[in-house]
Computed example of a mutant assay.
Amino acid sequence: MSSPVATVVSAAAPYDRAKAVKEFDETKVGVKGLMDSGIQTIPPFFVHPPETLATLKPGPEPESAPEIPTVDLSAVQGSRAAVVEQIRRAASTVGFFQIINHGVPEELVRRMLAAVKTFHEQPPEERSRVYRREMGKGVSYISNVDLFQSKAASWRDTIQIRLGPITADWSEIPEVCREEVMEWDKEVVRVAKVLYGLLSEGLGLGADRLTDMGLDQGRVMAAHYYPFCPQPDLTVGLNSHADPGALTVLLQDHIGGLQVETQQGWIHVKPQPQALVINIGDFLQIISNEEYKSAHHRVLANYSNEPRVSAAIFLNPSDRERLFGPLPELTSTDKPALYRNFTFNEFMTRFFKKELDGKSLTNFFRK
């Protein structure tokens, strides 16, 4: 039994954030494990600074709030030019849009979301088997990719799976979601080829220009789980950031919480049944010489008693050693290249050296 003196000294000791973060990571059960333990208040290392919290408004959104564009892909059959213009406008302004009538079976959408939820709600000993911060085997279950770099952690857990150009070890992909992930990947590749064709034409290029660069070949899925947060006004589900790659295809459930930063401020990306959320990444902003814009986005901490789940596939070039930069067709004496050339390997190394802090990766590659 400890003495009263020891208790006083312990209580007065300064909070050791690094130690707390390390201990949390070593439990290998993530935020879900914290909630299962019955906590009523979030650990201090999840509390975000006042300047971040000041912009948050957890809770239902007004019906009259602005929305990001929605594009009906089936309209391509009637007027491809009109759809190209819709996507071009969205990609060059807000950098986000939703697509409907994309051809992904409704039943697969349901199964995919259910599979993500099932993985994250397995007994802790099951999901902790793949808890690791390296992607050596192509599968990694973690809480916060930037846990050790960030000023404050975010209230979510994630399973990452490498899908291309070399797929993760089949045996490493958890059986509870393996089949669904593989089917989902095939559908996303199909949809991405359609989108790249439309985006390419929106730049005044041939429909195959972006896919010829292999921009649908490098793929990683991040399937997030956002449990109920007892103090959603003190933290976030995912901090403000721009995606580093070319294009992101996101499936989100009905809970909501995803927001994108626009000229009108932060607006909700309202869940639509069967819709996929598409956003432009930093890489596509660079090679388009800023014809297209990546957008900062974030996810609010989940105030709902029901967990929020989502699955994002990040589409990138497969050749990590090839030199990339603004496409020559999009530069001229009137509009010179705004960025230097770089390898995708250098690009992603830079991304993982920084926290998800709202500072765009593009800043590191400007001329």
Rank of each mutant, 00 (worst) to 15 (best):
4 P>W: 03
4 P>E: 03
11 A>F: 05
13 A>H: 04
19 K>T: 11
21 V>M: 12
22 K>R: 15
26 E>L: 15
38 G>N: 12
39 I>P: 12
40 Q>N: 12
62 P>A: 08
64 S>C: 11
67 E>C: 10
93 T>L: 07
110 R>L: 03
112 M>I: 04
121 E>M: 13
127 R>T: 09
131 Y>E: 01
147 L>S: 04
151 K>E: 12
157 D>H: 00
170 W>D: 14
175 E>M: 04
177 C>Q: 13
178 R>W: 08
189 V>S: 11
190 R>N: 13
191 V>P: 11
209 R>P: 00
210 L>T: 05
219 R>F: 04
228 F>L: 14
229 C>Q: 06
232 P>W: 04
233 D>A: 12
236 V>S: 13
238 L>A: 14
239 N>A: 15
240 S>C: 04
268 H>P: 05
269 V>P: 06
277 V>M: 02
278 I>P: 03
297 H>K: 04
306 E>I: 07
309 V>K: 06
310 S>V: 01
311 A>T: 03
311 A>I: 06
313 I>A: 00
315 L>F: 15
321 E>N: 14
325 G>P: 10
328 P>W: 11
331 T>H: 09
334 D>H: 12
335 K>N: 15
338 L>G: 12
347 F>Q: 11
349 T>F: 02
351 F>M: 11
360 S>Q: 11
361 L>S: 08
365 F>G: 06
